[in-house]
């Protein structure tokens, strides 16, 4: 019996050793220390109204949101990682805020109008649902808007291949009911933090 017990203990160790390792490093994510919500900010020199065309072919200006707050970012539909992450995250922000955010608009401005036609934008954003407003314009118009928002982009076209990627700013702008930028989210900001910051705009103290 003692040998059987030893055998049992050995096998149990093997089981732990062979299966335990993949969970290493996953514990930190469960640390639930509440973090303070960063306050809204004011930014001089970035933002402002602009005129582009949406995915239905209609003209759009920021002021046409008429008192609705908005979350705005730049991207492109062939973007494999950052843009789908941001769009999915905005869906999560809407889920967290629920009816509180019924008025919150999500605005996606393409930096790749050459491939992101009106139809392509409609198809791409339709996949994500949630009523995202997709905007395009001429390259010059896009340059002007992204410049005004302090962003940048660069098409990475390569000889010998038909597809290309675009390096672009990844900030997400929270815009208040008066059209002013009130917060810059980075890619590392999760949906909970984004929802908490946005809530301050929806329910001013």
């Amino acid at each position: 019996m003692r040998r059987t017990g030893f055998l049992l203990a050995t096998c149990a160790c093997l089981l732990v050793l062979s299966c335990g390792a993949p969970d290493v490093g996953q514990q930190d994510a469960e640390d639930e220390t509440p973090t303070p919500v960063p306050p809204l900010e004011s930014y001089s020199g970035i933002g402002g109204d602009f005129a582009l065309v949406d995915q239905h072919g209609d003209g759009f200006t920021l002021m046409s949101l008429r008192g609705r707050p908005a979350v705005l970012f730049f991207g492109y539909s062939y973007c494999p990682d950052i843009c789908p992450t941001t769009l999915s995250r905005m869906n999560q922000v809407h889920e967290i805020l629920g009816t509180e955010a019924a008025d919150l608009a999500t605005v996606f401005i393409t930096v790749d109008p050459e491939r992101d036609t009106i139809d392509r934008l409609a198809e791409y954003l339709g996949y994500f649902g949630g009523g995202v407003i997709g905007l395009r314009g001429t390259a010059q118009e896009i340059d002007d808007v992204i410049g005004r928002y302090g962003g940048h982009y660069a098409l990475r076209k390569e000889a010998g291949r038909s597809d290309y990627f675009v390096d672009h700013s990844t900030s997400t702008y929270l815009i208040d009911q008066q059209g002013k930028v009130r917060f810059l989210f980075s890619q590392s900001d999760g949906p909970e933090l984004m929802a908490a910051v946005t809530r301050q705009l929806l329910s001013p103290p």
Partner: peptide, 8 residues
């Protein structure tokens, strides 16, 4: 991935 986009 969304339609006609690459997958990561």
């Amino acid at each position: 991935p969304p339609p006609c986009s690459p997958a990561a």
